[in-house]
């Protein structure tokens, strides 16, 4: 009995979503165009279970490159409406379309001048009449006995939100420029949103020896550029390892005659790398996570393109730890 009931719920919810697929029409396309072309954010509002779904839609949109904010309708009428601007798109969620706390906002939103999209199960409702575009998320029946809690309808709302987010990703054609457009930063942010290639050292400024070199050459190379490390490459300039001050120190501590050691014995093979296009912030994260101060920079097939020192990130920009 319990199993049958559970199966029934899942089937009802699945059918609810499948029926939405048949209702995707030009209005959905128009909604996507409006959001895609909007200069502002998508403000999502709902109350109760729809409010919880609204928060999830906001999270999904934000993590897929569409800036979005949740607006609680009750807080909105007590001043939070100020966050809405004419460049935004207002997305209102209500299965009945008659949620007073939500509908009361519509005239103000209209006055601000942003587009209103309604996700509702009742296309004749107040919300539907007050929206520029209505997306019908109506379901035939809820899965909860007596309709005590919205079930199928909230699942349908959630699925429609996912459909919107995924379509927007595809419409953006995975263009990083679109992504970056929505991620402005402050002073530190500007520094850290640069790419590694903008600040890495290249050419002769990269300490580098071949696998066939001896340890004396390695130490000279570490000394020459004062970065505390030298990269080890093969004959195709592919990175095979790194020798750091620490590697040398550890070899000496083991009382090894370090100058007679083969390079491969002292170096750390396959060190962590990032690519020239990697955001500087990510490079900093890698350094912090793995407690390293030097990162080799390689192209997608492992050939050396440069080297990045922690000081290049922190010391050459506007940002300094001492605040001066």
């Amino acid at each position: 009995m319990i199993k049958d009931d559970a199966i029934e719920v899942l089937k009802l919810e699945a059918e609810g979503i499948l029926k939405l697929a048949n209702r995707i029409d030009d209005r959905f396309v128009e909604m996507v165009d409006i959001i895609y072309n909007a200069k502002g954010r998508v403000i999502v509002a709902g109350i109760g279970k729809s409010g919880i779904v609204a928060r999830k839609i906001v999270a999904t949109l934000n993590s897929t490159g569409t800036r979005s904010l949740f607006l609680h309708p009750v807080e909105a009428v007590h001043g939070d409406l100020g966050i809405v601007s004419a460049d935004d798109v207002f997305l209102a969620l209500s299965n009945s379309g008659e949620t007073d706390e939500l509908n009361i906002l519509l005239p103000s939103i209209r006055h601000i001048g942003c587009s209103i999209i309604g996700f509702t199960g009742n296309t004749e409702s107040t919300l539907a009449r007050g929206s520029d575009i209505v997306i019908d998320i109506g379901v035939d029946r809820e899965a909860c006995p007596l309709g005590l809690a919205p079930t199928t309808s909230t699942t349908a709302l959630l699925a429609m939100g996912d459909a919107l987010a995924v379509v927007l990703i595809k419409k953006r054609d995975f263009r990083p420029s679109d992504f970056r457009k929505y991620h402005p930063g402050g002073t530190l942010g500007q520094r850290l949103t640069s790419r590694v290639k903008d600040i890495m050292m290249t050419g002769n400024a990269v300490p580098k020896i071949t696998q066939a070199s001896d340890m004396a050459t390695a130490i000279d190379e570490i000394e020459r550029l004062q970065l505390g490390a030298t990269l080890v490459v093969d004959q195709t300039d592919t990175l095979v390892g790194i020798i750091t001050d620490g590697d040398v120190r550890r070899a000496v501590a083991r009382r090894e005659a370090i100058l007679n050691q083969p390079i491969a014995h002292v170096m750390t093979p396959n060190p962590r790398t990032v690519r020239p296009e990697t955001p500087t912030y990510d490079a900093l994260n890698v350094m912090e996570k793995f407690q390293i101060t030097v990162l080799p920079i390689t192209n997608p097939i492992g050939r050396v393109r440069g080297i990045l020192h922690l000081h290049d990130i922190l010391g050459k920009g506007e940002f300094k730890f001492n605040g001066r």
Binding site: S63, T64, G65, F174, P176, F179, R180, H183, E277, T278, P279, Y281, D282, N285, K289
Partner: peptide, 11 residues
């Protein structure tokens, strides 16, 4: 681990 992970993955 990486806040800009998604952008990196997109690229």
């Amino acid at each position: 681990q990486f806040q800009r992970h998604q952008q990196t993955i997109w690229e």
